[in-house]
Simulated scan of single mutants.
Amino acid sequence: MKQKLHIAGLLAILFLTASTVSASNPGSDSQELNAKELISEHLADSYEWHIVSNGNTHIAVPLPVILYSKTSGWHLFSSSHFHHGSASYNKFEIASEGKYKGKIVETDTNGNISRPLDISLTKNATSLLFASLLLILIIMGVARLMKQDPMKPRKGFPGMIEMLVLSISDGVVKPSIGKDYERYTPYLLTVFFFIFTNNLLGIIPIFPGGANVTGNIAVTFVLAIITFLIVNLTGTKEYYKEIFWPDVPTWLKIPIPLMPIVEIVGTLTKPFALMIRLFANMMAGHSIVLGLTMLIFITVSLGPTLNSTMTVLSVIFTVFIDVVELLIAYIQAYVFTLLSAVFIGLARIEPHTHKEKMSKPGQAA
């Protein structure tokens, strides 16, 4: 019975996803569907949180727009004034093409287009705040429950959270960093649950899910930079010695600092790898799900028989990829945390000790 409910739930989610894709392209029956453009629009950030469309009727949550113009100063208004990008407001509009496509631009009296300072609360930013608040409520609630009886074994959701905390703390952070691992445990646990929560919300196609937070390179860039700063600001003297004066032949360090340059480049490639790995995997997962869903609408013009066959295949493969995405949501959070812990551990190395004195004959070793 439970398996049937799970399958029904997945099919319902898929139906809602398909309905959203179909509704967002009202002319799909009369013109060719541009799959590439449609996927890009769904992955991109926006100034409103779209929920559903029915023909020309759109239901969306408007978000606050905060702009600063060099000519007219600060502006604060609702994104509903743009009417889905088809209108302008106070000389501001959402560009439909060009290098500022999808962004708010300002047109002056001479017709020149410029980009104002934009600190608006977009869909991804709102989802990020929502996920952070949800995570705080969950962790604080579980922590309060644990304080009531710390020795009592937990089941259900609190037990799952406890299992995840212990698996990251004892299975990842402690063996990767070493003796002072407790100093970095709060940050690494926060990173893991933050990424995991946003990954799960991104899989859900309906409000308040569906935002591409961890598939946004700006978010992964900030996370990677934080890890980079922690690694290099808390590194030991031995860590910096191995960077600027590594234990290699002198001719590799003087007169041309070949090995120090290689080591410095290595410190920069580590956060770059963190950023790209998380960004690319999550964006690719969303793209695959959207592409499989759109097979239903792409094959409409090929006849009912072929379209029905492709619809069944689309449902099967999309449900399968959604299940895989659940696993990837955990794996990517785990890998980011693991690599961050390894990089921190490499920066906490102690001076190397060598036994230079050999035991003399007849003397105990």
Rank of each mutant, 00 (worst) to 15 (best):
V324K: 04
V165Y: 06
F279A: 11
I296F: 05
S114N: 10
N90F: 11
S28H: 11
E93D: 15
S120E: 05
K123N: 01
I328N: 07
F92D: 00
D180P: 02
V165E: 10
A125T: 03
K155D: 12
V165W: 05
N124F: 00
G55V: 12
P62K: 03
S40F: 05
V65D: 00
M275T: 08
T311Q: 09
H352L: 15
V315S: 11
E238I: 14
G98R: 10
L137T: 12
E162G: 03
A218W: 03
P260I: 04
N25G: 03
I195F: 06
P208I: 12
G215C: 09
A211F: 08
M140R: 09
Y181E: 02
H286F: 10
T214R: 00
K360C: 06
A125R: 07
R154F: 08
N110W: 06
T337P: 02
E350R: 10
A218L: 13
L229D: 05
L63V: 01
K174P: 00
I51S: 05
S308K: 07
L11E: 15
I168S: 01
H352K: 15
V165A: 08
S19W: 07
E41I: 13
T71Q: 12
L188D: 00
I344E: 01
A143P: 01
I51Q: 10
L145T: 05
L339T: 04
G285P: 01
S72A: 14
L164R: 04
F15K: 09
S72I: 02
E106R: 13
A365M: 14
V219C: 06
F196L: 15
S24G: 13
Y100H: 13
I119R: 06
H81F: 12
P351T: 10
P246M: 12
E238P: 04
L121A: 07
V222Q: 04
F196H: 08
T214D: 09
F15A: 15
T71P: 01
P175W: 11
K99R: 09
P186T: 14
S69P: 04
D118M: 04
I298A: 06
T267P: 00
K355L: 14
